[in-house]
Design a protein around this nucleic acid. Structure first.
Length: 279
DNA sequence: CCTGCTACCTGATGGC
DNA sequence: TGCCATCAGGTAGCAG
């Protein structure tokens, strides 16, 4: 559930399900999900706490507890699940036949929230407070927040010599953008992913800022319609392909100039771009 | 400090 | 069919 719009859609959907609920019991089926924190530590700190509210910073989901803070990161493939009760959880979780993969489950006073990632990249951690969590304090401005302004963005751009694509993926500058929406934003802005961040003219920087904001807003709309259904373990965001203009379109004509979209490697990852109209 | 590269995992897909 | 290589929406950790 990778980038910011997807995570934001998850947070909005999760909020009414868990806000104000008490965590009666914690099940850790796959201890790798809490690494490097000890599963027993996580279980002990979380058990019996109440979820005050649900928040998000960058790609992290935050459950703010009456004491402490639980963070979840989905990395590439992690997802949330929902079960009616503890009985249903134990019947379905990690069974050989038709089993649902579940790494960690929080049994609430109403319903059960599951965290699952078959690939075991995703993580779920407990902290005393937000200040206490190094992952969060290292994050830059959140690309969906009000303070992600064109001028603040330009300031950080000019402070970096890296290629634009690598710059956009750096969560310590702007938080929330990943591989798909960095490609999309650069395509909309008509900027070459290999351009160095500090070489942008003010007008180009403004164009990129505007592109990011509109790409993320559009993707969020798409992610909310339909909203995630945590009850269905097969569920995934629908229709995102239809809004993408560059990502995953290698060889297909650029929707602006007709030139075939190219796939290039940057920092060991794929960048999709138009060689003609992204300058 | 900054930057680039690899490791971490599992599953899907496509070529032979 | 099977087998192998490659790819996947992310980031921590490490060397230079």
């Amino acid at each position: 559930m990778p980038e910011l719009p997807e995570v934001e859609a998850v947070v909005r959907t999760l909020r009414p399900l868990v806000q104000g609920r008490k965590i009666r019991c914690v099940h850790i089926f796959h201890p790798i999900a809490t690494k490097p924190q000890a599963p027993s530590h996580v279980a002990r700190q979380v058990q019996g706490r109440r979820i005050r509210f649900v928040d998000r910073k960058g790609k992290y989901v935050l459950l703010v507890l009456d004491r402490g803070l639980l963070t979840m990161h989905f990395r590439l493939d992690g997802q949330l699940l929902w079960f009616s009760n503890g009985k249903e959880l134990l019947q379905r979780a990690n069974q050989r036949e038709n089993g649902v993969h579940v790494d960690v489950a929080l049994e609430l006073d109403k319903g059960v929230l599951g965290f699952a990632d078959r690939r075991h990249f995703g993580r779920i951690h407990i902290w005393e407070s937000a200040n206490d969590c190094p992952d969060l304090s290292g994050l830059g401005i959140d690309a969906l927040w009000r303070d992600f302004t064109s001028s603040r963005f330009t300031e950080t751009l000019l402070a970096s010599k890296r290629p634009l694509k690598n710059f956009l993926l750096d969560q310590s500058r702007v938080a929330g953008i990943g591989n798909i929406y960095s490609c999309e934003s650069l395509w909309y802005a008509g900027l070459n992913p290999r351009r160095r961040a500090n070489t942008l003219k003010p007008q180009e920087a403004r164009r990129l800022h505007k592109a990011i904001v509109s790409v993320l807003a559009r993707a969020l709309e798409c992610c909310l319609h339909p909203a995630p259904d945590f009850r269905d373990p097969e569920w995934w965001f629908q229709g995102l392909e239809n809004i993408l203009r560059a990502y995953g379109r290698e060889g297909k004509p650029c929707r602006r100039c007709g030139e075939p979209i190219r796939r290039i490697a940057q920092g060991g990852r794929s960048t999709y771009c138009c060689g003609r109209c992204q300058k």
